[in-house]
């Protein structure tokens, strides 16, 4: 009978990655289902939509799998994945100019999504691109990835107060840019 790996903890799944192909495939799939969305969101928001973000996203999981087979078990898988993604993003930003592609922008929008929300989301995405890199990263980790301030501080090697301040400033800036639209929306 096929095992239901979805009930397993992250550390148990990481252990199963070292087993045979069938088991490791199933275990990796569960981990991928759990964390691929937040890693993808992080890459896309930090690097902008495009090939760079997709490359880093893929590389993050490939690196994670390979490291799990070599190193000791990681208990904070989300933090570990985001650390890998962050380092890869820093490499990309250091090596080349980041371009933001708006290809396929409408592709994943659900049809049932209200028009106002689509428009607001589009504006937020554009506004996020206007933020400083530090503020953008903190905001993405808080709002998209759901990390608390201590996790953000640990990931970014900053103090908790600093992490909180960055998220606060980012929200403020986004809100101020969107103010005319939000005002119109509330009327």
């Amino acid at each position: 009978m096929k095992e239901n790996f979805e009930t397993y903890s992250d550390s148990e799944l990481v252990e199963l990655l070292k087993r045979d192909k069938s088991t490791s495939s199933a275990a990796f799939k569960v981990l991928y289902d759990r964390y691929s969305s937040i890693v993808h969101a992080y890459c896309c928001k930090v690097l902008g939509y495009g090939e760079n973000a997709e490359d880093v996203f893929q590389e993050t999981f490939i690196k994670f799998y390979n490291n799990c087979n070599k190193e000791t078990v990681k208990f904070n898988i989300q933090g570990y994945l985001l650390t890998i993604a962050r380092n890869l993003c820093l490499n990309v930003k250091r090596d080349r100019k980041v371009t933001v592609s708006t290809d396929y922008l409408d592709m994943y929008y659900a049809d049932e999504q209200p028009y106002e929300q689509k428009e607001l989301l589009d504006l937020i995405n554009r506004t996020i691109e206007l933020l400083d890199e530090d503020h953008r990263e903190a905001f993405v980790l808080r709002e998209y990835n759901g990390l608390d301030y201590s996790q953000i501080a640990e990931l970014c090697n900053i103090s908790v107060v600093n992490a909180k301040s960055r998220v606060f400033r980012a929200r403020q800036k986004i809100k101020s840019i969107l103010q005319p639209y939000l005002k119109e929306l509330s009327e």
Partner: peptide, 15 residues
Amino acid sequence: AIRNAIHSDVRAFTP
């Protein structure tokens, strides 16, 4: 409104 819009960002959350 901003938070709800972000949570509906299917594109960002869908590899």
